[in-house]
Design a protein around this nucleic acid. Structure first.
Lengths: 227, 227
DNA sequence: GAGTGGCGTCAAGATCTCGTCATGGCCCGT
DNA sequence: ACGGGCCATGACGAGATCTTGACGCCACTC
């Protein structure tokens, strides 16, 4: 879940933001002043920070610099000041965006989404893209399959079938769905293709192709991948 | 030097921006409508795009999507509309920031700096800029390739292909992705180019061009670089 | 026990894709 | 104007992949 740190000294605003963000599935942490903000940020490691500039204890730029000293988390600045000098100072200090109060909730949320999207896109997509069984390993990102340490070559269609099954690990995937997503909408009833390609995959991947343990058939329904 | 693409149909604005940006050391390219914008973006590969939403030929979101189809370049939207619906739509379509006209040049420049800073920070610079194989060495930073101690000369296109493959070491890179990122979004299906350039790269780099060990083909899918 | 439907296996021809070479056009510096 | 480097494009054989049909097996039904 995406964690948002809201920093503002006006309880009114904090409350409004908390309600709106929580309702949209964000996890919300809050801080009422600069010291607090830095402390909480270090503790909860938010995915994005919404920071009011008019804090009682320290200057906004100081907070930004305090955060930037150790994290690249997106910072969206809120401020009542419309003066362009303030905006420039905050942005150059390391803020990602600057919204002037009063602000529209829709807009803030959209800017927040944009900031989060950017941040997550820049992180080289996590290792979660590797699925292992005791017989072989599938790397979804690299489109590679390893068996006994050696790479197994798959054709585009074989890969398409395997990928769809692996992405739905443990779930039953209907024949129609497989055919439509791999071959295209016009092939929804060519069930013969599936038999041929599942056999090929088993021959390449299963220790005992005739007794599959990972690429399983659900007669009359479809196929299932189990780790 | 940082390249900025300015897209606006009002010559006045384009002129003002060009002057200000050039004075601050940016390299400026311009486009007057959406079609132009996509074409120029593919050609000059800007580091940031400033995009006016009120273009004569196409909807702003369409332009954003057209860019997002193949590049993650930061997009700063300019618009006379203050309506929050427009802002939300543009940001959700993939824009990074939204500035309403009339805008302060200082602010725009600060937002532009913030966008560029973010984008360059997300590309880990020190990240293994040198990749070695037992046959040749690729220096991503210096854009050089060494083989048996001697420098191998590559044409810009050859380098573009090799760089993309090496940066995705071990991963399969789809032919569409290669074509779009090296030649531009309009060339997504010119698979013949790939065959020609991969052959040239192999001739220059592989000990046995007909039996490549580092620049591998995955028939029907794409190519892969292995060290 | 025969019939039926779904499945797995195999192999061969059709089709798509790849590597290679050759050619002509374009741009740029001389 | 003249080369030289670079890119786009066409032709074709070789190879990889897909499609298709035939056949046997199994489980279940009648």
């Amino acid at each position: 879940m995406t964690k948002v740190l809201v920093v503002d000294d006006e309880p009114q605003i904090v409350r409004t933001l908390r309600i709106n963000l929580t309702a949209r599935g964000y996890e919300v942490a809050t801080a009422g002043d600069g010291r607090d903000a830095l402390r909480v940020a270090a503790a909860v490691r938010p995915d994005v920070v919404v920071l009011d500039l008019g804090l009682p204890d320290m200057d906004g730029s100081t907070v930004i610099e305090g955060l930037r000293g150790w994290t690249a988390v997106p910072i969206i600045v809120l401020s009542a000041r419309t003066d362009s000098g303030d905006k420039v100072a905050a942005l150059d200090a390391g803020a990602d965006d600057y919204v002037t109060k009063p602000f529209g909730m829709d807009e803030l949320l959209a800017r927040l989404r944009a900031a989060v999207r950017r941040a997550s896109a820049s992180v080289p997509t996590g290792e979660a893209a590797v699925v292992e069984t005791d017989a072989f390993t599938v790397d979804l990102a690299a489109k590679k399959v390893l068996r006994d340490g050696a790479e197994v070559h798959l054709t585009p269609t074989e890969w398409g079938v395997l990928e769809l099954l692996v992405r739905n690990k443990g779930k039953l995937v209907g024949q129609k769905q497989l055919l439509q997503e791999v071959w295209g909408p016009a092939y929804a009833s060519e069930t013969h293709y599936l038999r041929v390609y599942l056999a090929q995959l088993r021959r390449k991947l299963e220790p005992q192709p005739s007794r599959p343990r990972h690429l399983l058939t659900e007669a009359g329904m479809g196929y299932r991948f189990e780790a």
